[in-house]
């Protein structure tokens, strides 16, 4: 067994403040536009965009489908409810609660995303 490798001495560093590097917070990473900051931002952006698109997708699937539904099923206009056609009730009264519900849902998710983001950023 040859002894070509230099001997390595393992000791603890004799410095007073071994970790005296400037503390890097998440907010400073974001401010400095570092790669870590980029990741923080991208995470938040994706989460918020996903929340928005989910709710807008629901809008398309509910109210956005109505013209097609009315177009394909003209019977909806013949069926009556309290003297008015069913399609009238759906369009004149039924749409608004759906819209408010979707909006309420979005606000909840968006605020949850922001709280989660604030927690992550402030803990690190």
């Amino acid at each position: 067994m040859t002894d070509e490798r230099a001997r390595v001495r393992v000791t603890s560093p004799w410095t007073e403040r071994p970790r005296a590097l400037p503390r890097r917070t998440a907010t400073s990473e974001i401010d400095a536009q570092s790669e870590v900051g980029e990741i923080y931002l991208r995470t938040l952006l994706r989460a918020q965009l996903r929340a928005a698109l989910a709710v807008l997708g629901m809008l398309v699937l509910t109210i956005g489908m109505l013209p097609l539904i009315f177009w394909l099923t003209p019977q909806l206009t013949q069926w009556q409810l309290f003297g008015m056609p069913v399609s009238w009730g759906v369009l004149g009264f039924g749409c608004y609660p759906v819209l408010v519900l979707l909006a309420w849902r979005y606000v909840r998710v968006a605020e949850r995303n922001e709280r989660a983001f604030a927690r992550v950023v402030e803990r690190s």
Binding site: L56, L91, A103, A110
Partner: peptide, 24 residues
């Protein structure tokens, strides 16, 4: 008639789109 009901529905739904994509 009823086809004009799309106007108020659209005027309200516009705020949902605004809320999701733009407001904050």
């Amino acid at each position: 008639g009823a086809e004009m009901l799309w106007y108020p529905v659209g005027w309200t739904a516009g705020y949902l789109v605004l809320l999701c994509l733009v407001a904050a």
